[in-house]
Design a protein around this nucleic acid. Structure first.
Lengths: 269, 269
DNA sequence: AAATCTATTGCATAATGCGTAAAAAATGAG
DNA sequence: CTCATTTTTTACGCATTATGCAATAGATTT
């Protein structure tokens, strides 16, 4: 009767089941804003607390998770930072651009954002706040929407459709169910046209419609395949700053082009 | 004869064995500078390639690992970044100090480093390069030595001895076997005295002996238990800048004290 | 102080990961 | 182009290991 050799659990990755469970657990923990109790974490990951507890024991032993204070709550630990920083250093435009981002900020007077494409969307990896008092509460790891942020639109335009398909659908569904933002109601055709327009222009902008009073312009750093490795975004308050033929946009494009060339020449392997 | 219920493998974490293996594997992958082949990774992690392959399948399914190009080499993926960034955002002195670090840099004219204690040692988490041309090629995730860096010495002095014991011994052994650095030959007694001196002073300095031409001074941000949550380090070229009664040191101490207070008042739970 | 919720540990069972080994694919030499 | 060699991937049965359930211990609230 047990001639079915396939994995009877839903998560068929061809790998190790325990690891699938473990990664689901750390994923949930990462999405929680801060320390969580065992039972809440178990609830989110949809597993009995005792099971979660055993996995957490392994995580703690590896330093991936720590138990905060004596509240017993669990939180991500130092090993998580190290793995993340190692991953960040791999895609080394982060380090390479470290010197350049402040320059760009000073040259434009706008807040500079560096984001990459993660599993949850466009993820902020580094930012340089402008001297001007722009109220942007955007921390490391913030994920930005695909359609309504300049950063997101870069990945919309310069990522293989397969990579963003799921997220795009999710956002489209969300806009439809949100009639208050009727001016944003994109459909499959609109998005296709938007994508083309952005690719032709070489950059993407959003005006104050999405975040009132804030405007942004973004451009991609492209690898040898023409895919966006990261997006550089400038955020400010002056709508005039993001005019297609303005100084800000040209500086941004120049910068991104230089980064793209640097990325493509070194990664010939 | 199998009445021994204890885990017969070496890694007894009280958790899930498969997860211990998995975390060892990602740890190795993180320590490799870049993409690695299956066989090399398996060699490092001391397991048969077939075993590593199965684990990697799970990692890839979760986005923790990607297969670079068609070389088949494995590398850390976007999920690794996200987990790391989430961990970084948790220990929120990173975000809190984001505004403050540049101020400190401008006030002192020195390069500012923010480091935390990770499993591999003192780990650079954020830095602000000084306008002055200081040649410091220090990327995110760089780990600094415990004895011969100002950042490391902070954790030497303000960490529970148990947490740093292993690393300390390793470094002591390394210094002993390295006769060219005879002026560094610390032993258990020396280190104990060094630790006491640093704790009394409230900060640690290193002069040009370790990195010729560079000097550094560091101070801790302490949590409610009196342990160092992170270290703030100033790096420069002028030995006069790091005098104990100088302006730079007092600015640094003032800054760290402020951060410590902020940390302790908000984390009352 | 009682009660409720949460965290942690123990145990039997069967499901899962492990080693061995072979197939398939890639690489390199003649 | 063909063969030889290395590397990656898949297959399978056995034994170890993760699991669900339940009991205990601890914490927090009424």
């Amino acid at each position: 009767m047990s001639d079915k050799r396939e994995n009877m659990a839903g998560s068929v990755s061809g790998g190790i089941q325990s690891v699938d469970v473990a990664l689901r657990l750390v994923g949930e923990l990462a999405q929680c804003g801060g320390p969580v109790t065992l039972s809440e974490l178990a609830r989110r990951a949809e597993m009995p607390p005792s099971k979660a507890h055993r996995y957490l024991a392994s995580f703690i032993a590896a330093g991936l998770v720590v138990q905060a204070g004596r509240s017993g709550k669990y939180d991500l630990g130092p090993a998580a930072m190290e793995i993340g920083l190692a991953a960040l250093a791999r895609h080394d435009f982060v380090n390479r651009s470290a010197d350049a981002l402040p320059e760009l900020r000073d040259a434009t007077g706008m807040t500079v954002l560096l984001s990459v494409w993660g599993t949850e969307g466009a993820t902020v990896v580094r930012w340089e706040r402008a001297p001007a008092p722009v109220i942007t509460s955007m921390g490391l790891g913030t994920t930005l929407p695909l359609l309504t942020s300049a950063s997101g639109r870069i990945f919309l335009a310069w990522s293989p459709p397969g990579a963003i398909g799921g997220h795009l659908e999710k956002e489209l569904a969300l806009t439809r169910s949100n009639p208050t933002q009727s001016h944003l109601d994109y459909d499959v055709e609109n998005v296709k046209a938007l994508r083309e327009r952005i690719r032709e222009a070489g950059f993407a902008t959003v005006d104050g419609r999405f975040i009132p009073g804030l405007v942004a312009v973004a451009a991609p750093v492209l690898d040898w395949q023409g895919e966006a490795q990261c997006a550089i975004t400038l955020i400010g308050t002056d709508p005039a700053a993001i005019r297609p033929d303005g100084k800000v946009v040209s500086k941004l494009l120049e910068f991104c082009h230089g980064q793209s060339v640097a990325l493509q020449t070194q990664a010939t392997g």
